[in-house]
Design a protein around this nucleic acid. Structure first.
Lengths: 351, 351
DNA sequence: AGGTACTGTGGGAGCGCTCCCACAAGTGAT
DNA sequence: ATCACTTGTGGGAGCGCTCCCACAGTACCT
C-alpha cells in the first residue's frame, strides 16, 4: 500500500504536500504562499518559505495548469515564413520588447510561425487544444481567418497593426497619422511648398492613416491638397521608382517627397538622381520606418521611427490584462482597447 | 451534487470520459486509440475515432502531462544574446532543420535565449521545473555549466558542436576534419604546393579538427607540414588580416591559403590585395562556412559548406531517441551518440 | 479435459495542484 | 453577553488524463 503509486514522482521532486508537512501547515496554506496571497500571517509565510528553500521545491506546472485551467504561456504568432522573420528587423525588435516585458512574469513565450497552410493547420489545432492563455498577433492581413478563430475559442488576443478603425481585437499601433503629419510639417517648416506623397499599400490601414496625416498637415498649414502630388506605392523599391516617375512627369516642380517607407524612398531616390535632381537641395526626401536603409542611404534619410519594441511591451501589457480580466469567471471588465504609440521623426541630411 | 465541480471544464471541451460514453467503450480504450496503441480491435478503433470526430475532442495537454509525467515539449537553448541569433544565419538554418524534423511530431519547440546572467538563471529555474522533456544546445562554450546542470537533472540533451573528443553529451557535428581535408586536397589538386592555414579559435574543438584535416591532407599527398605555414586566427576579419600578414612575411612564396572561416578569408583577402597579389592567380583562397560573404566576395570564395539544417534534424532525431529511451523506467539503452555529418566543398573563382 | 498464453477491454488509483467550504480565533459594535 | 464580521487556516473534491491490474474471451498446446 505504501509503495503503490510511486510510478511518476517526477524524478523525486518535492510536492506541495511535502512542503506543507515540513513547514507544519496545510496544503492550502503553502499554495497561498506560493501564489502570493496576502491572507497568510507573516510567521507562517516565513516558515513555508524556509521549507520551500530547504526542499528546493518547484511547483509542478502541469498540475497547476490542470487544476487552474490555465497554461501560463502565450504565443507570439508570426503569420509569415521563417525567412521573413529573420530578414526583417521588425520582428526582432518586437521580440525584444515582448521578451523584456515578460521577463519578470512567469509567463512563457512561444514563438509560432504560420507561414504556410500546414503550419496554419497546426496552429489551429494548437489553439483548439488551448495550449496558451493568450495570443500575440503581429501584422494580420485583412482577410486572415485567425482573428475569427481566436474569438470563437475565446482566447484573448492582441494584434499589432489593426486591420481597420473598427478592429475587433485589442490592438497596438504606432501613430501613423501623427508620424506622417510630423514628417510633412517638418518639410513645410523647411520652406518646402510642393510636398508629394508616395503612399504605402492602401489596403493596409496604417498606410491610409499616413495619407490622412499628410493631408491634414498640409491643410493645417493653409495649403490645399493637390491630388496630383499623391501617388500610390506598395512599400517596395520598384513601387517607389514608378511612383516617383509618375509624380515627376505630372509635377516637375515638386520640391519634397514623403515616402510611405524607407524602401520606397530608396526607389524614389534613384529616379530623382537619374533626373538630375539633388537631394536635398532640389528635392527633400523623407521616409518611414527608420530602418537600416535610412541610415546607410546617401544622403542619410530623414525618417519616421516607430517604437517597435515598445509596441511589443504594450501588447504584452494589454494581453495580460485581457487574460486576467477573463479569469474571474465570465464577466469581462473593460472595453476593447486600442493603444497608439507615438512616433519620432529622425532628421538626417536628406531634408 | 450534479453541479458540483463544473468550475473548470475548460470552456466546455469534451473529455476522454465523454468520448468513451459516446463510443460505448471504457476510458482506457479511448486512451489507447488516442495514443495509437495496437491492442485495440479495428471495430472499436473506428467507433472511437468517430466519437472523437463528432465531439471534436482534443486531449488536454496539462492532464496528460501530469498523469504521464512528460511535457511533450523540448527547448532549443541559444546561449547567445538575441541579436546574435538574428544576425547569424547559422541559427536560422538550424531552426529550419529542427522545425522540419519536428513538424510531424506532437512535440512543441521552445526557443530560449540564455545570453546574459539573468536569462541563464531563468533557464535554470525552467529546467529545474522540468518544463521540457529535452534540450537542444547550440554551440556551448567549454566552461559552460549548463551541460552539468542538465545531467544532474537527468534531462536528455543534445549539443551541436561537441566541446572535445570526450564530449559527455550526445552531440551532432559537421565533419570538420573531412571538410578541411577536402579543401586542402582541392588546393593541392589545383597544383598548389605551399598551402597555408589560418586556424580558427583553437579552444573550439571544431577548429582543432580542421587543423588535423589540413595536416593529414598534406601528409597523405606526400608533403611535409611546414609549421611556418600555420598561423592561428580567431574566426574574425581582423584576425584574418593579422594572420595573413604574418604568413606573408614568413613565407612570401606561399601560393594558397585555407582560412578557418569565410570572415577570416575576407580579412586575408584584403591583405593579399594590398600586397599586390592576385586571387586566384598568385594565391588561391578557400574559406569555411559557405556563408553569404563567400558568395558575394570578389572573387567569389571557394568554401566548405556545413549542412546546418541537417544537423538540426539530426539533433532532433537523437534527442527524441534519448527521450524515449529514458521513458520505460530506468534502464538506458544505447550509448552516448555522436553524429558527424558530411561537409561539401563549394568551388568558386577564388581557387 | 485441463492448462497456458495471448488479445482486447473496463475501470480504479493516482499524478500535484487549485478552489472553495468549513471552521477556529480574534475584533469590534450592539 | 450576543451578533456580525474579518483573518488565517486545514483539507476535501476535483481537474482530465495515463498506468496498470483484473478479467472475459479465444486459441493452441498437452
Amino acid at each position: 500500500m505504501a509503495s503503490h503509486g510511486v510510478r511518476g514522482r517526477s524524478g523525486g521532486r518535492p510536492t506541495l504536500e511535502e512542503v506543507a508537512a515540513r513547514a507544519g501547515v496545510g496544503r492550502g496554506t503553502v499554495s497561498r504562499v506560493i501564489n502570493g496571497s496576502p491572507r497568510v500571517s507573516d510567521a507562517t509565510r516565513a516558515a513555508v518559505q524556509a521549507a520551500v528553500a530547504e526542499l528546493g521545491y518547484v511547483p509542478n506546472t502541469a498540475a497547476r495548469a490542470l487544476a487552474a485551467n490555465r497554461t501560463d504561456a502565450i504565443a507570439l504568432v508570426v503569420p509569415e515564413p521563417e525567412t521573413r522573420f529573420f530578414a526583417e528587423p521588425y520582428f526582432s525588435d518586437m521580440l525584444r520588447g515582448v521578451g523584456a516585458e515578460l521577463a519578470d512574469t512567469q509567463m512563457q513565450l512561444l514563438l509560432i510561425f504560420a507561414g504556410n497552410d500546414r503550419e496554419r493547420r497546426r496552429l489551429a489545432e494548437y489553439l483548439a487544444a488551448h495550449r496558451v492563455d493568450g495570443v500575440l498577433l503581429v501584422s494580420v492581413h485583412a482577410d486572415d481567418p485567425l482573428p475569427e478563430l481566436l474569438s470563437q475559442l475565446e482566447i484573448p488576443a492582441v494584434v499589432s497593426g489593426p486591420r481597420s478603425a473598427e478592429e475587433t481585437l485589442t490592438s497596438v499601433d504606432s501613430d501613423n497619422y501623427g508620424g506622417a503629419r510630423a514628417a510633412v510639417e517638418h518639410l513645410l517648416g523647411r520652406g518646402r511648398t510642393r510636398v508629394a506623397h508616395i503612399t504605402g499599400r492602401l489596403d493596409v490601414y496604417g498606410a491610409r492613416r499616413r495619407v490622412d496625416g499628410y493631408r491634414d498637415a498640409l491643410r493645417a498649414a493653409g495649403h490645399e491638397v493637390d491630388e496630383l502630388l499623391i501617388e500610390s506605392g506598395d512599400f517596395t523599391e520598384e513601387g517607389g521608382r514608378k511612383a516617383m516617375s509618375a509624380l515627376l512627369s505630372r509635377r516637375p516642380d515638386l520640391d519634397a517627397v514623403f515616402a510611405g517607407s524607407d524602401v520606397t524612398a530608396a526607389g524614389a531616390r534613384q529616379v530623382l538622381r537619374e533626373s538630375g535632381l539633388r537631394i536635398p537641395e532640389d528635392v527633400a526626401l523623407v521616409g518611414y520606418d527608420d530602418s537600416a536603409i535610412a541610415r546607410h542611404m546617401d544622403p542619410p534619410l530623414t525618417s519616421v521611427r516607430q517604437p517597435i519594441d515598445n509596441m511589443g511591451r504594450a501588447m504584452i501589457d494589454l494581453l495580460l490584462t485581457e487574460i486576467s480580466d477573463k479569469r474571474p469567471s465570465g464577466l469581462r471588465r473593460g472595453e476593447r482597447r486600442h493603444a497608439v504609440l507615438p512616433t519620432e521623426l529622425v532628421v538626417r541630411a536628406s531634408s
